[in-house]
Amino acid sequence: MFKYELIDEEATTVISFEGDLDIDATELMEEEIAPKLYDCSNIKIDFSKVQFVDSSGIGLLITLIHHLRERGIRVRIFHVSDEVRIVFEMLQLPDIMGADVLPEFEHS
């Protein structure tokens, strides 16, 4: 089951994701998480507790990042696990989402 925790640290909002990021996370991501983040100006996403992400989850993440950046919100993803890193790299997410969103990755 996919969960999240939101912590405000001064000017930065840290959101920690936990669980499998797949199609079951759709409603939570679109109806709850995204609207909560639209009021922030600087967001760090902690991915350390996400061990699995499939194509639907990647789609949710890309859409979230896209909508946040469209609103001028700075967003970065940290602590990506090795399993998830393989998927991110295979899909060249640093190229798609922007290298500044994934500072732990090498930009190709």
Partner: peptide, 9 residues
């Protein structure tokens, strides 16, 4: 061989 998914860029 890597490549960006269709619809990515």
């Amino acid at each position: 061989l890597k490549g960006v998914m269709i619809g990515g860029l």
